[in-house]
């Protein structure tokens, strides 16, 4: 872990301003992934901007009849929230399938989107990794890649990357993709929204860029649309042990049924 400065943000605007003035700084909320990566010298921020005291730990109703999850809601408080577990049980199920009770108590909803891959080579600074150090090579493609991508890695597949096969490790995000959530962000140029499917990027030729959030932007909330598919849903996760392991493969499926007919179907794949 390198030497870094620490600032406690007292407002969203000032937090974003601080970040914009020092692009090598990082926001920290739960810290469960960032601190681990800092210990391994994978992440080397010059400053941590602690956003834990910002007023973003709420769940509110949206005008469209959905729920707005504040970015600083913890994963545990979100999954066990009465409204979320009743109206979006797929989301609760997916969150509770991930990590451990301790980590879910620390990790925030915004941070869950921002966590980085668990590719072993990404973590090991002694090995080449295009995500960590663009141009150094990919150790996973011909290495140990049991936890890596399966779909989209074969020759001829559209959007296939020859530089990286790392996956995003989240369970929560698979459910958010199926539910067609919307990510709300703020930056020096104001607020904007990003449809969930456009938030994370395929590795392509820029495997070091995980998502479409700009360096000086902050996630403020995640909006869940009105339809939570609370009647017919399932989150299935296959992994090497039955609890506290990353998915080898996961599926979030949700159906809308009318008179025995499927009128709307959502399937998102993860792992």
């Amino acid at each position: 872990m390198i030497n870094f400065d620490y600032t406690r943000a007292d407002g969203v605007t000032s937090a974003v301003r601080d970040r914009a003035s020092e692009l090598t700084a990082k926001f920290i909320a739960g810290g469960t992934n960032l601190i681990d990566l800092m210990k391994e010298n994978v992440e080397r921020p010059t400053r941590l901007i602690d956003i834990n005291r910002l007023p973003l730990a709420t769940i509110t109703e949206t005008e469209g009849g959905g729920l707005r999850l504040g970015a600083l809601m913890t994963n545990a408080d979100t999954a066990y929230d009465k409204q979320v577990s009743k109206r979006y049980p797929l989301l609760s199920q997916a969150i509770l399938a991930g990590a451990s009770a301790q980590l879910r108590n620390m990790a925030t909803d915004g941070g869950n989107l921002m966590q980085r891959t668990r590719c072993y080579y990404f973590y090991d600074v002694a090995t080449p990794c295009n995500k960590r150090e663009p141009g150094s090579g990919c150790s996973a493609i011909n290495g140990f890649n049991r936890i890596h991508a399966i779909l989209g890695t074969e020759a001829g597949t559209p959007d296939r990357s020859i530089h990286c096969i790392a996956t995003h490790p989240s369970d929560m995000c698979v459910a958010l993709a199926a539910l067609e959530a919307v990510v709300r962000v703020t930056g020096p140029d104001g607020d904007r929204t990003i449809p969930f499917a456009e938030f994370h990027r395929l590795p392509g030729n820029t495997p070091h860029i995980d998502n479409t959030l700009k360096d000086d932007e902050l996630i403020t909330a995640i909006d869940l649309p009105a339809n939570g598919f609370s009647k017919n849903y399932a989150y299935l996760k296959l992994r090497d042990r039955t609890s506290y392991a990353f998915a080898l493969v996961s599926v979030a499926a949700a159906l809308e049924m009318e008179d025995g007919r499927i009128t709307d179907a959502r399937i998102a794949l993860g792992g």
């Binding site: 620490y6 739960g30 810290g31 469960t32 601190i35 451990s100 301790q102 980590l103 108590n105």
Partner: peptide
Amino acid sequence: HGQCGACTVLVNGKRINSCLTLAIM
């Protein structure tokens, strides 16, 4: 690294991994 749980403490009554948070936070 937050994988074993031996460092578990309670913060405001909730259990967390003390190895994955900074004291100053």
